[in-house]
């Protein structure tokens, strides 16, 4: 085991090359709906149980299923209202179980990226070959169904190995959502040396973390989004920032939550200088215009420290 993942160099907030988003935007805003399938009775990973209760864990399973039966369309209508295209973190088993939802995604010209096969299949304990096979399988399922190349990865249930990001870069991926170290994209170091980036995917504003882990009230979540936006918008005058809203239809899609979220989006989208982007577009723009500067700056800072 390592004491440092070794995935990125130190790049302090006050010594960065300026990031310029398209059309002079201050903030790149991207919304990442997780479209997930949780199995009722999966094989039990030796390091993590899928459900707290004995199978069938009715409340655990049905809570997630609510997103698929009820929540996604509700959430899509809200995003449609603001012209937001989602970047979908996809349990690729959904392409088989519930393709009707994926068709609604593709009609809207949203991005699909990989979130593994099922959110009840964890990376823990997989050999490197097994993980490589699972990553390639999920990417293939996305391209077979949608014709899209899978550019991004969020490991299933945020379960990782030491090789996860190396393997995804080698499989042809461009960006990861698995790192929470920054409010801007950053270069990611992988063993293949490929040009590969982290796109900020805020865990602190992830609806599941907000509602379930931190037990935040629905209206307060809306206020948190507005406050985060205000600060990133102000700082974005100097250099472009990123606001990511990771969502789950089984959380934000509830009737006591969605209106407060909608008001927050209304606030965000009422500003000029907001780039409503997808994960892929942010990664691509950064790789094309800012990646090399950032790598050079990190190297200079490391040389100074040495």
């Amino acid at each position: 085991m390592k004491s440092d993942p070794g995935l990125y160099g130190y790049l302090p907030w006050d010594r960065r090359p300026e990031i310029r988003w398209p059309d002079g935007a201050r903030v790149a805003v991207w919304v990442a709906p997780n479209i997930e399938f949780y199995e009722l009775d999966p094989p039990v990973n030796p390091q993590r149980k899928p459900w707290p209760r004995p199978v069938p864990d009715v409340t655990g399973y049905a809570t997630r299923d609510y997103g698929n039966r009820v929540g996604h369309l509700r959430m899509m209508r809200v995003l449609d209202q603001f012209g937001i295209r989602g970047s979908v973190s996809l349990s690729t088993a959904m392409l088989t179980h519930h393709p009707e939802i994926i068709d609604l995604v593709l009609e809207r010209d949203w991005e699909l990226f990989s979130h593994g096969i099922y959110n009840t299949r964890y990376t823990y304990g997989l050999s490197e070959d097994q993980e490589r096979e699972m990553i390639a399988d999920a990417m293939q399922r996305i391209s077979d169904y949608s014709g899209q190349h899978c550019d991004g990865y969020l490991a299933p249930a945020l379960s990782h190995s030491e090789h996860t990001i190396d393997l995804f870069a080698e499989a042809g991926g461009t960006y990861t959502c698995d790192l929470f170290h920054d409010d801007q994209p950053t270069p990611v170091i992988t063993r293949s040396g490929k040009r590969f980036v982290s796109v900020p995917y805020s865990l602190e504003l992830n609806d599941t973390i907000v509602y379930v882990v931190n037990k935040i009230e629905p209206r307060r979540y809306g206020e948190m989004i507005c406050r985060a936006f205000d600060r990133l918008y102000a700082e974005g005058e100097r250099s472009g920032t990123v606001l990511c809203l990771p969502l789950h239809a089984y959380q934000v899609g509830h009737p006591h939550r969605l209106a407060a979220f909608q008001r927050a989006l209304d606030y965000v989208c009422s500003h000029h200088g907001v780039w409503l982007a997808t994960g892929r577009e942010i990664a691509r723009h950064y790789l094309d215009h800012h990646y090399d500067d950032a790598v050079a700056t990190i190297r200079r800072i490391e040389e100074e420290a040495a």
């Binding site: 990973n45 030796p46 039966r69 179980h97 519930h98 304990g125 699972m134």
Partner: peptide
Amino acid sequence: SLDPKFLAYENLRHGMDHDRYAWSM
């Protein structure tokens, strides 16, 4: 490594992964 069953998806099919109720939006 894990047993191959961890990369086998026995209930991967259209609809639900059980027979209790029909898939319906």
